[in-house]
Simulated scan of single mutants.
Amino acid sequence: MVNVEKQNSGVFVKGNPNGGAVVMLHSSLSSSSQWRTLETKLADEFLTINIDLLGYGSAPQVENPESYSLNTEYKRIMNVIANVIADRPFHLVGHSLGGANALKIAVQNPNRLLSLNMYEPVAFHLLEQGTIAREEVDDFAKVVASSSDEQAARYFTDTWNRKGFFDNLPVKIRQLMMSDINKVNLDFIGLISEKYTLDVCAKISCPVLLMHGSHSPQISGEVIKRLLSVLPNVTECEILAGHMAPISHAEEVADIIFNTLTIK
């Protein structure tokens, strides 16, 4: 069993070194810790590579915010993967922002993935300009960017959870979220500025598990609809939960992903 935690870089490698590699990417205002339940469940059969995205957990901050894009995340993630498993193929798991990063990795490496497992990837650039859904996303990003850190953190977390969620959190957690709002704004910039088109996603030939919640915001559902229309080898899974199910329903989501990965 491997248990390597590189605290300064936000990279956590655990599990069976002879098993298939599973790369895990978390959501905005979160960290690799959201995947601990899944990490534990996979430990006997898989090698897990659980990564804090830039600016979250114990990962480095973004060095050049003015030039930030998802390519910034992509290069670091792929470098981490290369350092751990060289050029071996791997399974990929992502939630929300992590799902959007996972989708980008799949688009750019369609022949290397063993599977792609996403819970509501917020690949907002796939929402066409001029549509109501895209306008809602752009308006949402503007509100977060123009508000105080506290107001932005409240608006962001309440939208993706439920009204009043932020104010019911412990003070320490609220403060941590407020301190991470600048990275949330960069996340939106990266998500909206992506250039690949929906038709390119049709080149992802590996099995795709596309999970979503029955109580999630409509804007994440719009991305799901578009992906379901083009992915050639996709399985849809709806959970009686919201956008943050990988955290609020961690055991259920972990079971679904585990069962998908262990199907022979």
Results as ranks from 00 to 15, higher is better:
E222G: 08
S31P: 00
A43P: 10
P246E: 05
G213L: 03
A21E: 06
S147D: 13
G94P: 02
L54T: 00
S69M: 05
P207N: 06
L92C: 04
I85W: 01
F12M: 14
L53A: 08
S179A: 14
L42F: 01
G20R: 14
I189H: 13
E128I: 07
L25N: 00
V80S: 06
H91Y: 14
S69L: 07
R174M: 10
A106I: 07
Q7A: 13
E39P: 02
G55Q: 04
K104M: 13
A250N: 05
V107A: 11
I51K: 01
K225H: 12
K104N: 13
K264H: 10
S229E: 10
C237F: 08
T260G: 14
G99A: 08
L113I: 06
Y68N: 02
I263F: 11
A59P: 08
G15Y: 01
V137C: 06
T260V: 14
K14F: 13
T157E: 10
Q175H: 11
L92N: 02
S147T: 10
P232A: 10
I51M: 03
E5S: 14
G19E: 05
L29D: 03
F90S: 01
V93H: 00
K142I: 12
P89I: 09
N79A: 14
D87W: 15
R226G: 07
N71P: 15
M244H: 11
C201N: 03
R162H: 14
P217T: 02
V11M: 07
E120D: 07
N233S: 05
V80H: 10
P217E: 05
E135G: 13
V171H: 11
Y119A: 00
R174G: 05
M78V: 09
R36F: 15
A21Y: 01
S69R: 06
L261G: 01
L116S: 04
L228C: 08
I219H: 07
V144T: 05
D158A: 07
Y155Q: 08
K104S: 10
K264E: 12
D158H: 08
F46N: 01
N71E: 12
S248C: 15
A100L: 02
I257H: 00
A152Y: 01
Q108H: 15
E194W: 05
P121E: 04
S179D: 11
D180E: 11
V80Q: 07
G57K: 02
N50E: 07
R134K: 11
F156W: 10
A82W: 13
I105N: 03
I173N: 09
K203S: 11
L29Y: 06
E128F: 08
F258D: 00
S146P: 04
S205Q: 15
H249M: 06
G94Q: 03
G130L: 06
L209E: 02
